[in-house]
Simulated scan of single mutants.
Amino acid sequence: MAITAQMVKELRDTTGAGMMDAKKALTEVNGDMEAAIDWLRTKGLAKAAKKSGRVAAEGLVGISVRDGRGVAIEINSETDFVAKNADFQQMVRDITDLALQTGESIEVLRATHLNGKPVEEVITEAIARIGENMNLRRMHLLEGDTVVSYVHNTAAEGMGRIGVLVALNGPKDKAEAIGKQIAMHVAATSPASLSEKDLDPSLIEREKAILTEQARESGKPEAVIEKMIVGRMAKFFEEVTLLGQKFVINPDITVAQAAKDAGVEITGFARVAVGEGIEKEKEDFAAEVAKTLGA
């Protein structure tokens, strides 16, 4: 497979590796971008393993919570101009409230009636009225004794760029107090799962394979390598699981310890960020303005 300059640039942007190292990595794995990232990490040449999904699409995340039940939905638009549109924001608010009442899944929500019409049709009419493509992309429902929410980069009440829900068991007053702090922590750190047992097995295997190759390149005996891998995997779990992470409010303790000290238990969380994992063509500012104005 021919390795293009664009492929090299994308890999450099993702990993922080040098140009020649990025080109060599792509050549070694026949252009497979994820495999090239792993190759660079194995060789210790990736300065940072950035998230593979680049956030590009616009829109809003809507959050609604009531009586131990919370919902977060994402509705995308093409530009952030539309995300600031009062008409669009009202639609997001209405669909979010509807999802909290009746939503079981994104498919059910699309078919549920809002003001006498299916949500899918409401969005289609908004596309025609506002003049920009939109999409109801994701929905997360969370339940617990207490569900706490947090919205980052707020555009209006209950909606913004990042929405977080945290479910907790325990006394309601204590859960609400520590829950808000934990929700802010989740917004900042974007953990992959609640705990080690909730992690995607393929993610664990991939990380273990990378760490194993790194350890073997040290030339140490196999028995030493095994101990190195155990320690490094423990560090990995601390970094990517919510309960294992150092609490941003007090880095001397973990999130699990903070919850325990508060007398509550974290049972689940959801974090939704606008455009997460969506590719979008880059446009210059003038072109985006012209597009919004229908020029």
Rank of each mutant, 00 (worst) to 15 (best):
M1H: 14
T4R: 05
V8F: 02
T15H: 03
G16Y: 03
A17G: 02
D21G: 10
A22F: 06
L26Q: 08
V29N: 06
E34A: 12
W39C: 00
W39P: 00
T42Q: 10
G44Y: 06
L45V: 09
L45T: 07
K47V: 11
A48Y: 14
A49C: 15
K50T: 14
R54K: 12
A56G: 09
L60Q: 00
V61N: 02
S64V: 12
S64C: 12
D67Q: 11
G70D: 02
I75V: 12
I75E: 06
I75G: 03
I75C: 08
S77W: 14
D80L: 12
F81M: 07
A83M: 13
A86H: 10
A86V: 10
F88W: 04
Q89A: 07
R93L: 13
D94N: 10
I95Q: 04
T96C: 05
L98D: 01
L98V: 09
G103V: 02
E104H: 15
E104S: 14
S105H: 08
E107H: 10
V108M: 14
R110D: 07
T112C: 08
L114G: 01
I127Q: 13
R129V: 05
G131D: 12
H140W: 13
T146I: 07
H152G: 06
H152I: 09
T154K: 15
A156K: 11
A156C: 09
G158P: 07
G163S: 07
G163V: 01
L165Q: 02
G170L: 02
G170F: 04
P171N: 04
P171T: 00
K174D: 03
E176W: 08
I178M: 02
K180I: 00
K180S: 01
K180M: 00
Q181L: 13
Q181N: 14
H185R: 04
A187G: 03
A187D: 00
T189R: 10
A192L: 15
K197M: 11
K197C: 08
D200N: 10
I204F: 05
I204W: 03
E205I: 06
I210V: 06
L211Y: 10
A215E: 09
E217H: 12
K220I: 01
K227P: 04
G231C: 02
G231Y: 01
M233V: 01
M233K: 01
F237I: 01
V240D: 03
L242E: 04
L243S: 00
G244D: 04
Q245W: 01
F247L: 02
F247K: 00
V248G: 10
V248D: 03
I249W: 06
I249E: 11
I253L: 04
A256Y: 08
A258C: 08
A262S: 03
A262Q: 04
A262E: 01
V264T: 05
T267K: 09
G268S: 09
F269R: 05
A270C: 12
V274L: 03
V274M: 03
I278K: 04
E279M: 12
E283S: 14
E283V: 15
D284T: 11
F285H: 08
A286I: 10
E288N: 11
L293F: 04
G294L: 07
